[in-house]
């Protein structure tokens, strides 16, 4: 449990979280999201390296692949919002409420 790497990963996670919650633009939020995923991957990778356990590395690779798939879906949705004429901000998407 390397404290340096874990603190880096924690801060990365919190930054990502802050971006996700505070920013209004969808793209910035998406970046925050990816940041959180990468923080988790970093922590996972460090533990795998420390333990020399191959399962951790397999997990890291697979998670990166899934994050890529997520990115595809996320970006297409943001593009669709943009094409629909509305600015890609959370404020534009407030019709569903109550």
């Amino acid at each position: 449990m390397n404290p340096l790497v874990w603190s880096a990963s924690a801060t990365l996670f919190l930054f990502g979280l802050a971006a996700l919650i505070l920013r209004r633009e969808l793209l910035a939020m998406f970046l925050g999201l990816e940041l959180m995923v990468l923080a988790a991957v970093l922590a996972l990778g460090e533990t795998a390296a420390r333990l020399g356990d191959s399962e951790g590395f397999v997990a890291v690779l697979l998670i990166l692949a899934i994050a890529a798939a997520e990115a595809v879906v996320g970006l297409t949705l943001i593009l669709r919002v943009h094409w629909s004429g509305r600015p890609p901000e959370t404020e534009a998407l407030r019709e569903l409420k109550g």
Partner: peptide, 13 residues
């Protein structure tokens, strides 16, 4: 029902 303001950041919060 007023809690659900409809904005994405609130629900994430």
């Amino acid at each position: 029902s007023s809690l659900a303001t409809g904005s994405l950041s609130d629900s994430l919060w």
